[in-house]
Write a protein that binds this DNA or RNA. Structure first.
Lengths: 215, 215
DNA sequence: AGGCGTATGCTCGCATACGAGTAATCGTGT
DNA sequence: ACACGATTACTCGTATGCGAGCATACGCCT
C-alpha cells in the first residue's frame, strides 16, 4: 500500500475532486476548492496550482476540453477529468481513509529533542501550547456549532475529527504538564542537573540508545 | 511565529540535536540518530542526509572541525555545531513545543473527499483503518511497556504521545463507524441516493459552500 | 472621468527533496 | 583463504514545491 502517486501533492487530490464534478479552468478550480473550504483541510499552497494542474495533465489524469475566453483577456484552458483521473481519485481516497498515517506530527519531533531545553522552560512552553490549543478548541467548537445548522453532517466530519484530535492533544498535554509542574515527573532532578552541570549523570548517559524493535 | 527555517527539513533538527552533543562526521550522525530512535519520530529520508548537512554548513549552523580517516578509505569531514546552530536548535525546539501544528493530517483530506465514494464502501474502508489502528496500538503499547523498564521517562514521551493520539483516533473512528454501520448517520440516504443516481438531491446541491469564517 | 484598491489569473526561478545507484570495506561461514 | 552479504559512506539527476512577482480588469468612490 501507500503506492507512489503520479502527482503526490494533496492539492492534486483537491483538484481531482472538484474537476470530477464538472470541467473547469485552473483558476476556477482554485475558487471552488476555496469555496468548499477544502483548502482548510489540506494546507494548500496556491503557488503550486499550475504546476499541479500541469502535471495532472501530463500524466493523463485530466485533459484539455477546449478553451474559453470571457471579457477578461487571457484564453483559459478548460480541463475535464479522465477515466484514469477518476480511478486515481477513488484509489487515493481509499488509501487515505483505510491506511492510518505513517507520517509523524511535528510535535513528536519536538518532544524527541525536548531534553535539550531545561525542564522549567519546557513547562512554560507546554503551558503556552495548551493555551493555544484551548483557544483553538473553543473557536472550532463554536464554528462547528454554527455550521451544524446549515450543512449536512457529511461535510462536517473533517471539522469534527480535527476537533476531537485537538481535544485529545490538549488532554495529553495537560496531564504531562501536571507532572512537570507538580514535580512528580520521574527523572526531573537528573534533567535539571544535566542543565546545571552541562553533563548527563553517568547512570543516564548511554541509556538513550534504543534497541531496534520489531522493525 | 512559525518563522522560516534556513534549513527546514526535520532531518536537520535531528542532525543539530546529535551534533550538539559532540562533533561527528555525516554518517556517524545518521548512526546516532538511528540508535536514538529519533528517525522513528520524524520519518527521516536518508537520501537527504548529505544535502541537509551541506545546507547546515552553508548557513553556518554547523562547521567543519577537521577531517579524519580510519581504516576505511574516504576522508570524512567532521562537523561541529556553531553558536548559530545551537540557537537555531533551541529556537526550533521551542517552536515545536509551544505552537500546535497548522499542518493537517492526511486523513482529514481523505474525510473531505470521502463523499465521492459510496457510503458502504466508506464503512468498509474505515473498518479496515480501525483494524490497523488497533493492531498498531497493541504493538506500541507492548513496546512501551518493554521500554519502561530500561529508559527514563523523558525518552518515552514521544511514544506515549503517539500512542495517546492513536487511541483517540481509533476511538473517533469507532464512533463514526457505529453511526455508519448502524444507519443512524444523518443524510445517509441522500448520500446513497447520490451514488445510485449520480446526482445530488437538489436540497443538498450548492449546500457544500462554506462561509468564510474568522479567517 | 480618473484614480485606486482588490480580485483575477498566471509565470518564473531557485532551492530542495529524495530515490536510486555506486563503491569500498568488513564480518563470517565454510 | 576466499566468497558473498551486509554495512559503511557517499553522489547524482530529476522532479517538484512554492514564494514572489506581474499584469490586466473590474468595481466603486469622489
Amino acid at each position: 500500500m501507500a503506492r507512489r502517486r503520479r502527482v503526490g501533492n494533496l492539492l492534486a487530490l483537491a483538484v481531482l475532486s472538484v474537476v470530477a464534478e464538472r470541467p473547469m479552468h485552473a483558476y476556477e478550480m482554485a475558487s471552488v476548492i476555496r469555496a468548499r473550504g477544502k483548502d482548510r483541510d489540506m494546507a494548500v499552497k496556491w503557488g503550486s496550482l499550475y504546476t499541479v494542474v500541469h502535471n495532472l495533465d501530463r500524466h493523463g489524469l485530466i485533459e484539455a476540453a477546449g478553451s474559453a475566453r470571457e471579457g477578461g483577456r487571457p484564453e483559459r484552458t478548460v480541463y475535464r477529468i479522465t477515466g484514469a483521473g477518476r480511478a486515481e481519485l477513488d484509489d487515493w481516497t481509499r488509501e487515505l481513509l483505510s491506511e492510518p498515517e505513517e507520517e509523524r506530527p511535528r510535535f513528536e519531533a519536538g518532544l524527541s529533542v525536548m531534553g535539550g531545553l531545561p525542564p522549567d522552560e519546557v513547562t512554560d512552553l507546554l503551558r503556552r501550547r495548551l493555551d493555544v490549543l484551548r483557544r483553538e478548541i473553543a473557536a472550532r467548537r463554536a464554528e462547528l456549532e454554527r455550521d451544524r445548522a446549515g450543512l449536512p453532517r457529511l461535510f462536517l466530519l473533517e471539522s469534527e475529527y480535527g476537533l476531537a484530535m485537538r481535544e485529545a492533544e490538549a488532554e495529553w498535554t495537560r496531564s504531562l504538564l501536571g507532572e512537570l509542574a507538580g514535580g512528580s515527573f520521574p527523572g526531573l532532578d537528573q534533567w535539571r542537573e544535566f542543565h546545571r552541570t552541562g553533563r548527563l549523570p553517568p547512570d543516564v548517559a548511554g541509556l538513550a540508545e534504543r534497541r531496534s524493535v520489531t522493525d
